[in-house]
Amino acid sequence: MDFFIELVVSALLLMGGIFVLLGSIGLLKMPDFYMRLHTPTKATTLGMGAILVACMLLTSYRSGGVSAHELLITIFLFITAPVSAMMLAKTALHLKVKIKKGSRNRDLAETAKHREPPSHAE
């Protein structure tokens, strides 16, 4: 049992660390803002989830009881990550941030900025 919990916690910690690192690599590497937005919202959130679950398991195991308050941060992050991503996307649309050449449907960015239906919908 002892070994089993240690194994699970170690695996979760490594997975969390790798995903958090991946999120930041994507942030540095991607060519335009909208592509950069993808990795921090997903990979980092998943990595944080893994680290927090590992933290919860280890604290519960060490104290011999149930330690569930790390779950609060996890849920909070999973709720706020999409919201802040959407606010950042709105800001980028408003500031007309450069979109990578060769992106498809670049004209949609303009209609999205004004919150209108797409032009082909008429």
């Binding site: 969390g16 803002f33 921090p40 980092t44 950042l88 800001t91 980028a92 500031l95 941030v97």
Partner: peptide, 20 residues
């Protein structure tokens, strides 16, 4: 980061990492 939203995004990611 070339634009302001890039910098905000980096800051946002950084505080999440600081929690970890």
């Amino acid at each position: 980061g070339p634009d302001q939203p890039d910098r905000i995004l980096a800051l946002d990611t950084m505080y999440i990492n600081s929690i970890a």
